[in-house]
Every structure is written in structure tokens, then in C-alpha cells.
Computed example of a mutant assay.
Amino acid sequence: MTVGDLLDLLSACDRDASVRLAVNPFFPMAHRLGGVEKALDEQGRPMVYIAESPEAEQFGPLPSAVAIALTWQGPVEAPARRRRGAARPNDGQ
């Protein structure tokens, strides 16, 4: 993804919406953004880094809909419940 790609995606969002960073697809959590830094990679190409908040503030698990949209997890349905049998006397055993 490039900065232009990110700007295109963000331009469709509410400018007053809070921003969170989704991390770790195996234990998806939401974090507060802390800043943006420009740098060069090993080949001298420009890079932009989005950093986590200095307080490392974590907001808890991502909403399931977000994890599904990121394809970090599939839609999950509750397993079907099996009908439980009636209690039977054990004939004194």
C-alpha cells in the first residue's frame, strides 16, 4: 500500500472519526495511533511508518465484523445445540 492508496481509503471516511490500528491477526486487538514518521528503506526509497501511541494504549479485541472484513477470521456461527435427553432414574445403582 502506498500513501496515495491510504489517502484514497481515508478520503471516504468521516474526518472526525477516531482512528485505531488493528494488529495481530491471530489475536486481533485495537491500538491508538501515536504518530506518522517518514524514513528511507534500505534501498533509499521513501517509507512512511504509522506508530502506536507512546502510552501503548490498547482498546481490546477488534469487533468481529472488522476481523472478518480484514479476512483475519471467517464468519463464525454458534454450533447447533443437541437436544438433551430426559433424566432417567438409575434403579438404585
Rank of each mutant, 00 (worst) to 15 (best):
L6C: 05
A30V: 05
A51L: 11
E52L: 13
D41G: 12
L6D: 02
A39T: 12
I50M: 05
N24T: 11
D16M: 10
Y49Q: 06
L6A: 07
R45N: 13
D41P: 07
P46H: 02
A12G: 06
P28T: 07
D41A: 11
G34M: 10
A12D: 08
Q58W: 03
R20D: 03
D16P: 00
R20A: 04
M29N: 14
P28Q: 07
S53N: 12
F27S: 05
N24Y: 04
G44C: 12
C13E: 00
L21G: 06
D14M: 00
R45T: 11
V23C: 06
E42Y: 10
E55F: 12
G35H: 07
R45P: 02
L9K: 08
V19K: 01
G35I: 10
Y49E: 09
L7C: 09
V36R: 03
F59D: 04
S18K: 04
A30R: 09
A39G: 13
M47G: 02
P46Y: 03
K38Q: 08
L6T: 09
D41Q: 12
R15E: 11
V48K: 05
L10G: 00
E42R: 05
E42T: 07
F26A: 15
V36F: 04
R20T: 09
F27T: 02
L10F: 01
N24R: 15
P28V: 03
R32W: 02
E42W: 04
L6Q: 06
A39E: 08
V36S: 03
G35S: 10
F27A: 08
G35T: 13
R32E: 03
